[in-house]
Design a protein around this nucleic acid. Structure first.
Lengths: 140, 140
DNA sequence: GCTACCTCCTCCAGCGGCTAGAGGAGCAAG
DNA sequence: CTTGCTCCTCTAGCCGCTGGAGGAGGTAGC
């Protein structure tokens, strides 16, 4: 038999906070579940697995819009796998760009902190921030 | 002689968009400049260098609140350099945490995309997202 | 002097992805 | 029957901008 849970149970089962679940419903990421007579939302197993899917995808950094597409694909098993792959690859490229950017920043900030002076008057941190020319990279 | 520029000139000189400059004034990151008779903002050299400082710091990922503190320090050259250093080091640690997290995600997503099936029915991407147990790392 | 155009002004709303709080109603246990 | 938990809706806030509406000031050419 199917047992359905209220929003608190769904939250515990999925690890997604209650207001966030309601938010996902609001933006149409999660279908509006049926309600009890007392107007409480009731989630079944399928809803819960959808919630877990969403959570996992969010943790992996997928944007809500990408998750929408992935959920849509998951609901049509005969569609080509390539579509899902494409979304993941796009995301991978995005992650790589972020890592590259952060690494460049890291170097710059690290160089800044190699300051051995006493006062702000000739502190490298303040100086470097005020003068872009001290940077190795231009692109930022 | 000091020549002052209007907001468009300040924008061009600093690379910060006009609405963003007004926004910085609104949140108190930039002091309210004097106005012309026609109510236009007039920025002098000091304002421009402050704007460039802000831009550079933002590009390096410092949060507005950190920039506020750094600007404050820059205005008090006799203060210990350590304070600025501390802010930069905190930021560096934050960058490192972000890189570490992204690298873990990268690996996970990369593993996902090694899918050689034809349809969504047994696509690794969809499968992995639905089942956390397939992941190497737990923490996300 | 007039027209056209550019720059500027203020105010307000929106992005993404939640998060939190107010104020009220339902529900189960003691 | 009361206590306390969970749930409901609605609204506003977070960060760091960004853009648009609707209007006023300023300038260059005719």
């Amino acid at each position: 038999m199917q047992r359905a849970v209220a929003i608190g149970g769904a939250s515990r089962a999925s690890g997604i906070k209650i207001p966030t679940i309601r938010y996902y419903e609001q933006i149409g990421l999660l279908p509006s579940p049926p309600r009890t007579e007392g107007n409480r939302r009731l989630y079944d197993e399928e809803d819960l697995s959808r919630l877990r899917f969403i959570r996992h995808a969010r943790e992996l950094g997928f944007e809500v819009d990408a998750i929408r597409q992935l959920l849509d694909l998951a609901g049509h098993p005969s569609r080509p796998c390539r579509d899902a792959d494409e979304i993941a690859r796009t995301h991978l490229a995005e992650i790589d760009r972020k890592i590259a950017r952060l690494s460049a920043l890291r170097e710059e900030v690290e160089r800044m902190t190699r300051c051995r002076n006493e006062t702000v008057a000739n502190c490298r941190v303040i100086e470097v921030l005020g003068d872009h020319c001290e940077c190795i990279h231009d692109q930022h």
